[in-house]
Design a protein around this nucleic acid. Sequence first.
RNA 1: GGCGGUGUAGCCAAGUGGUAAGGCAGAGGUCUGCAAAACCUUAAUCGUCGGUUCGAAUCCGAUCCCCGCCUCCA
Length: 473
Amino acid sequence: MKVFNTLTRQKEEFKPLVPGEVSMYVCGPTVYNYIHIGNARSVIAFDTIRRYFEYRGYKVKYVSNFTDVDDKMINEARNEGTSVPELADRYIKAFLADTAALNVEPATLHPRATQEIPAIIDFVQTLIAKGYAYEADGDVYYRAKKFPDYGKLSDQNIAELEEGASEHVNDEEQARKEDPIDFALWKAQKTADEIAWDSPWGKGRPGWHIECSVMSTKYLGDTFDIHGGGQDLEFPHHENEIAQSEAKTGKKFVNYWLHNGFVTVGKDEEKMSKSLHNFVTVHDILQEIDPQILRFFMASVQYRRQINYSEENLDQAKTILDRFKNTVESVQYRLAGKAAETTAPELAKAIEKTENAFVAAMDDDFNVQNALTAIYDLLPLVNKQASQEKVAKTELTSFLQHLAGWLGVFGVDLDNLTSSAAADDAEIDALVKKRDQARKEKNWAVSDQIRDELAKRGIKLLDTPQGTRWTRE
RNA sequence: GGCGGUGUAGCCAAGUGGUAAGGCAGAGGUCUGCAAAACCUUAAUCGUCGGUUCGAAUCCGAUCCCCGCCUCCA
């Protein structure tokens, strides 16, 4: 398998630390609001990657955090007149519900920053002891220049960073910092009502970057396989994580850095983000569209590529899912029927070829487009086979099993894709039977009337040489 | 300004030296009582200019457009 490593800017052969196992950490959301489509993209991208590792037989340990204390949390809690923990609980619950709707597997572990305070304090103390950090008026800062590789992930130049940073930092903070590019590990409490924990430096709370260093190394070890997140986290967040972690452990922090591309919106394809106010929350959009479509849409674009969120593109995703649905139901209909059996060795061969192509594509830095193309190539063959007079039961069953595996990587469950049983099934069957009788009698008025009636109820009829099957739209 | 990404048919998109995969939409056809679904057929010389080469979307140089990061941000 090859993955694109941001650190080296090239595809590298993936070699896990422990054969057969993958340890990965993905930066999770700050829980002060519902997640938007852009956040979902990251979650889906890495869930898809995780599922593919599992598909290939790896045991995956997947850790993803919740940032449940920071400036935005504090401000939002104040605005709403609630507490930071209450706000966090509410939106963590919403995150889990939204991502579950998108068929995202829960992480092996979902640590929360506020539940790791002792470990964070220990970590910061070690950095101070090693000379990589210093306390100033209750804040603790990381001495960026002390870390020789600072900037290596994002190819940033220290001198230019200093220049840029000095424009952003206010005088008060500047006065406490030795250097404008130093960043906060611990922030002193500003007002008495602000959430804070006791520490060797007085009451305060952790900075943003430190929690990820602490939680990832605590649960995955000083060195682990994969660290993921959005491209906007490359600098400064991940750069700082490297500086903190490697300074503390003296070991390589992460072997493979993976970053997903953005979701853009509109004609100008601008990045969807909270600050641009052009975002759509998952919570809202799921009232309008089938979560499965959104999931497949996002999973069907390679994780590093940009996704343009538009109605037209969502429609295309729906069309493709409908094709899969149609083929699956058509196969299931034939397998359930009483037609004579036959064998189709050429189909068996084609399925094997597709499997190989699927794996080859996904092994190449999760090239989902080529993986899907491999499946598309198989569909006409299956559709033709499914309309034969005799049923190639073994091969068609094998197809369904393989397809379930392939689409499963994309987070699409065949069971959810196809029409499920409902209370009025028998009634619909009866109407279909009645229509068949009318058709036999060439009573087109009655048969068409029944079809129209069912269409109004969202039932689509498909007449095949082997009989009429129906599906829920 | 620095760093990174991107530019292939109406849309999505594969393709790193050998003469442009695939999907959607569109068009035509087959099947069907009609319809639906399915099946078959069908379109681009690859942002621009120049160079290397027998040969380039693919390599080199220049240039233009777009997007992102440069301490809020997946």
